[in-house]
Amino acid sequence: MTFDDALRATELLLALAFLQQSAEHVFGSRVAPKLFAIRGALSFLLLFGLQSQWVLLGLCLHSLAVLHRFQGPYNGGSDRMGLLVLFCLCLAHWAPDGLWAQAAFGYLAVQVMLSYFVSGQVKIANPDWRGGQALRDVFGFSAYPVTASLRDLSKRPRLLWWASWSAMVFEVLFPISVLNPTVLALFLAIAFCFHLANACLFGLNRFVWFWLASYPSIFWLQGRILDGA
């Protein structure tokens, strides 16, 4: 994947993620609808590639207003990832061509890989995760909007033990996937399914779109590393 193709793919996916988020605020929850209508309008421009450089700068400034409105990210980790993708993309557009622009975009890829690795490492160090108790607690009485029927999964410790270890092993192994294009495609497909499952089970729908928007940067970085090797 060329640098320009990866930037454009990221723009498209980020625009779609912001449009989904804006639609939710404007038509669904009605929380700060005017603020998110502006984000939606800017995202449309980004989707069609109209003045992308200026639109990205506008979205960065607008995101400061959103942070001020909610005194921080509205939805924790998923919004932080959205901001990371946005700011890295904006820097890649505004930095001088060549190494600086690539460094900004490569930083995004490294952060995404670390997001999986660090998450797995933290879980493996926690005895509750190693024994499956953490996931039982999540299904049993977490504050996530888990539906009542899924709470019964907390009574299936063996299944949750396997699920815990599958997630932990996958996450800590994620960085080595960058060594082979087929393995990376496989890992990203699994990661996407993982986020999709979290959206269905826990309502963490924003993670799906923002993490997906970051995947072109990993594909590009892998090509850059393998070409240079």
Partner: peptide
């Protein structure tokens, strides 16, 4: 409304 619930949870954690 799920993201709204998650924001309420964030506020509770901040409190």
């Amino acid at each position: 409304m799920r993201n709204e619930s998650l924001f309420v949870m964030s506020c509770a954690e901040r409190i």
